[in-house]
Design a protein around this nucleic acid. Structure first.
Lengths: 194, 194
DNA sequence: CGTCTATTTGAATGTACTCAAAAGCGGTGG
DNA sequence: CCACCGCTTTTGAGTACATTCAAATAGACG
């Protein structure tokens, strides 16, 4: 197995069992794409035609509203799946950008190829269902907390749960992810240090 | 087909094709449960052992934090799937309550039975994957908007998208769903009427 | 070293909250 | 049929949390 596929296969095997046959089908179906820092993987308006797994590096997906303000939807580091799912699933123009924050390698599978894979290796249908469920739960939790907790509390949770991310992304992006201004995050940090 | 199953079968057929065989397998697997107004379907701390489809009526799922404050996670009316997914998926105690806001009929399938159904009718695996994906996207959108939009804008969207719900649930619950106080929602409404 | 970008600081403002009280509304019993 | 009770919604005053804007400081990188 090529080394670059190791995180992907391990990520899938955490959820479902894979035969050697299925493993090699998967490896054949996913293709690597290397991104430079700041390179944009998906533009708003393009149709997202791939499911994407981060083999190495760091990405963000973000949204720009009518007034030009950026909102970070999701960060992703090694072992995360990142996509504009709505675009992927409905074949419509993406709402979000996806950009590399570090030199990054993703493994991508084209939509039609994935549908094929679901037939050849039906266990993958199960894998993606479970992944979706977990993502959904995590996101619901985020919604709840974004409404019920103060910014300080959300920041505390962020550094507790995503230390690896906090260490590689600039602070103003963390602020954007938390839904607050960089200035406010700065004062929160000042208060925490006391 | 018993009439009560009609919304369920139609809901599934919107997403995947069903043979007569599969249809009858589904009907055999789901069981109705009738709830009185205010009756609680799932208690925090219990394990959610069923997937649930609302055949008729209205439910809410809500969360109570350490300080005793209630936060509404989701409303559901006819044709909606409602659950504490984390509990269901991981066999752990529920974080949320689920309660009937109206006399309600749900169709439930027990976890083991659903796993069986996935084997007998694999198309259902696909159905739930797609449902999860859509739910995920809707929820991500909600997170984004709860952070990027003012309460007034969120309320406007709520009445635009969920008029049917707004008309049957008390206003203070809408406030809870939007993450604001009932008093604040009241003043927002006053301003809108001008 | 200089330039560009990110972070911090502070003042003024705005959005939403808390608390308290009044008004509205629906159902029930006399 | 009306009066009362309990619950929901409205109103208002004072407060807290977070934002905007402006400017100063700190860091990264060529």
């Amino acid at each position: 197995m090529e080394n670059i596929y190791k995180p992907l296969i391990e990520n899938i095997k955490e959820v479902v069992n894979l035969s050697d046959k299925e493993t090699s089908l998967i490896i054949d179906a996913f293709h690597p794409k290397v991104l430079a820092k700041k390179e944009i993987l998906l533009f708003k308006g393009d149709i997202s035609n791939h499911m994407r797994f981060i083999s190495e590096g760091c990405l963000r997906s973000y949204y720009i509203n009518e007034e030009g303000q950026e909102y970070i939807v999701q960060f992703g580091i090694q072992d995360w799946w990142v996509n504009d799912l709505y675009s992927y699933l409905t074949n419509t123009p993406a709402q979000y950008f996806i950009q590399a924050l570090q030199p990054t390698t993703v493994l991508q599978i084209y939509r039609d190829k994935l549908e094929e894979l679901f037939i050849q290796a039906p266990i993958m249908e199960r894998f993606f269902r479970i992944k979706m469920q977990n993502a959904y739960v995590a996101n619901q939790d985020r919604t709840l907390k974004s409404m019920s907790e103060t910014a300080e509390s959300r920041y505390r949770n962020f550094i507790k749960n995503y230390r690896a991310i906090e260490q590689v992304v600039p602070q103003y992006m963390v602020a954007s992810y938390l839904g607050i201004t960089p200035e406010h995050l700065s004062t929160i940090r000042k208060n925490l240090h006391k």
